[in-house]
Design a protein around this nucleic acid. Structure first.
Lengths: 133, 133
DNA sequence: AACAAAAACAATATTCATTATCAATATCTC
DNA sequence: GAGATATTGATAATGAATATTGTTTTTGTT
């Protein structure tokens, strides 16, 4: 049961997300999709973004400032956030040993249970903000 | 100006925070301090926790589930969160090269600007939750 | 010790992002 | 195309965090 039906709005949301390499928030997705579907509501955007996440077609990127961004890059990767403008960029670190190194390092230093994964966030200043100074 | 005055409530909040090795949320702090000061308000707890953070006597631990925890462990360290119960534990990783290794690794794979720091969160299952299964 | 100014308090109101509700509409199956 | 049901849009509800307001405490001064 719970058959999934097609919806233009969902398709538009998905299309927009996949057209961008940065990682928009629900708000940003709404502000763009509303141009094509002026009557779309914010709830629909949230609902469908969650839907994509549930289906495994997107992931959420929760930032330490409390904002939640959506990311259609499904390959395991890291994120960089600019302290100035808040922009997020991907860091593709395809070194196969990297994840293992980090986890093994952590496992040595704890007895709190079983470590299965980790989330790392890098911070700094992006090129654009650097130039402004 | 801006002289800091003593307050029993602030002291109680601080004392509670320092008495725990896990990392309570504002809510949890409130629920415990209210036992000693039944009339204390949630606002006071938030205000004083922020105050401690501003003074550098505590740090915030923003988790990917959106919750914000408070930590009185001032030494640089990592955190582990149990996927089952949400409990947070410290991971003391005093390997001096560790931070450098991680940052250098990331710097190799990006051109997005200057990386100045990182935040890493480990996930898994804690011993207690593991035993329950 | 009493006073007044400064700071902190408790309670409440407000904000903001996200989620839930529900009648109306769009999509799918036969 | 008709009936069944998933999805929408609009709005209300939620919940964490912050701001506001009027009242108490605390402190320094006389």
């Amino acid at each position: 049961m719970a058959a999934v039906k097609f919806s233009r709005q969902r398709e538009a949301i998905k299309e927009f997300l996949y057209s961008r390499k940065d990682h928009p928030t629900a708000e940003v997705v709404y502000n763009n999709v509303v141009k094509e579907y002026p009557k779309i509501s914010l709830g629909t955007v949230y609902r469908n973004l969650s839907f994509l996440v549930d289906k495994g077609e997107a992931i959420t990127v929760p930032c330490s400032d409390g904002s939640v961004h959506f990311d259609c890059n499904l390959k395991p990767h890291y994120h960089f956030q600019c302290n100035e403008c808040g922009k997020i960029a991907d860091i593709e670190m395809d070194d196969a040993d990297y994840e293992k190194k980090i986890l093994d390092g952590a496992r040595k230093h704890t007895d709190c249970g079983e470590i299965t994964g980790h989330v790392t966030f890098f911070y700094g200043i992006c090129d654009e903000c650097k130039k402004k100074k």
